[in-house]
Amino acid sequence: MLLIPCPFCGPRPELEFRYGGQAHIARPENPAALSDGEWAEFLYLRDNVRGVHAERWRHIHGCARFFNMLRDTTTDRILTTYKTGEPRPEAV
């Protein structure tokens, strides 16, 4: 089980959190203007990184807030967490 450092509450067990998938995928401003291919890319295509992955988590049984986390998917080691809206930090 991961011990996840919530940027608002500190380290808490994974069971308090909900995984939110790949981070930094912005919803297109005007979906109606997109082609089917561009819309499918937004909805379904993912990097599925083998290495350092930026991902969203929500502390659903705690402060209930979203945040982002860098984790190495080859070791599950957590590198850092940061607040939603902040740019992705350099991999530590």
Binding site: M1, L2, E14, F17, E55, R71, T73, T75, D76
Partner: peptide, 13 residues
């Protein structure tokens, strides 16, 4: 498990 990973291991829960 809830999260993507390539570790070939998961959590005890």
């Amino acid at each position: 498990d809830a999260y993507t990973s390539y570790t070939q291991r998961g959590a005890l829960h």
